[in-house]
Amino acid sequence: MPVDIKGREMIAPRLLAHYDRHRRTLPWRAHPGATVDPYAVWLSEIMLQQTTVAAVTPRFARFLTRWPTLADLAQADEADVMAEWAGLGYYSRARNLIACARLVTEQYGGMLPDNEAALRKLPGIGDYTAAAIAAIAFGQRAVVVDANIERVVARLFAIDAPLPSGKKAIRAAADAITPDSRAGDFAQGLMDLGASICTVRDPQCMLCPLRDGCAGFAAGNPARYPVKAAKKAKPERCGTAYWIERDGQVALVTRPPHGLFGGMRSFPDDGWRAGADGDGVPPIVADWQVARRAVRHGFTHFWIELDLALCIEFSADMEEVTWWPIDRLEDAGLPTLFAKAATRFKEMRHAA
């Protein structure tokens, strides 16, 4: 049941009026009448990829405190940025963040370009992020489609093509309702609507300003949209992480710059990866205390279960490791998986 032309023309005015009254207050969102900071918009959009607003809000503030401008971030030590990013996941975002800041400083005088085509050429900026920055930061007409907008638009137009094949139709529908002016506010209004009213489960249709033009509501079952294809089971991997301790310090390694956790600190491991289990070979010969399947962690495309091997009386030297004070381990910026492992390792130490 498609939205008729008259109803479609009313979507933008109704949504913008609702947004003006009910917009969420977010730290990266400019107050009405205030100048938009493109750096804040870009930083927030990168952080919000695959991450919730609740998780990003305090981390965004910390980033701005440490690196208040794009130029500051361009001059930052990559290890410091990666450590600050720890826990947010999808660490390639942080590496691209630094690369983008440096490229913009070198090629654009420290100012993000104001159009989608140029933005898409920058590290870590894809179609969605380029459109969001162009619309929100620079007032350009751009078609912005994130997960919330995708859900709202699929329901408005009752688009029943299963995802991901349905994304093309959803984007075309979003294009049809995006206004020439206030495209950034329109996009943020749709995001707010999806976050607070047109939610994944139990949408609050009676509160929705777009209810009268919504084909999903008219059909009586808006929650069925967007239609999603059945998920495939994620493969299971297993490996081992190693705690090697001497003189109140623990051995950490810096992972290769590319790949999983690229450039971040972690415990030594046995070479497990997304496509293969670890080989179980420890980095040194020692009397290991082992906890089997002690940590389980989910990634986008696979699960990992780690055995944890503990050696607390190591006295020799090791190459290519950093000896990190155990009482300051929380400052090492360990990824979430290894932060979980650290907690369990400390329990093993105390029980030893």
Rank of each mutant, 00 (worst) to 15 (best):
E78K: 09
M1V: 09
P2S: 14
A83L: 06
E319P: 04
L210I: 06
F60S: 10
F314D: 02
A172M: 05
C238H: 10
D327P: 12
F338E: 03
V104R: 02
P32H: 15
K231F: 09
G333V: 02
V321C: 12
G239M: 14
R93P: 08
A187S: 05
C100Q: 00
A54C: 03
P162V: 12
W85F: 05
A339W: 08
E245W: 11
P257L: 15
Q289Y: 07
G248Q: 08
D212M: 11
F186G: 10
R102Q: 11
E116R: 05
W272L: 04
P282T: 01
L64Y: 08
A101T: 00
A233S: 12
W28F: 12
L210Y: 13
E319M: 07
I98M: 13
G271S: 03
W67L: 15
P203W: 09
A142P: 01
A101E: 00
Q249Y: 14
Y242K: 01
A54G: 02
L190E: 01
R14I: 10
E84L: 12
R95P: 03
L210F: 13
E347K: 13
V36H: 10
I125A: 09
M348Y: 05
F261R: 06
R59N: 05
M191Y: 08
V153G: 03
W85V: 05
A195H: 02
F299D: 01
L329W: 13
Q140R: 15
E305R: 12
G278P: 02
G87A: 03
A131Y: 10
T69A: 11
P38W: 04
E245N: 15
D327V: 11
G126A: 03
A130Y: 09
G124F: 08
A274N: 06
E45W: 06
W42C: 12
D192L: 09
C311W: 09
R66H: 14
R62Q: 14
H350F: 14
V153T: 01
A183T: 00
A219W: 04
P58E: 02
V290L: 10
D192I: 04
A309I: 02
Y91N: 13
A294Y: 01
F217Q: 10
A132L: 02
D270S: 09
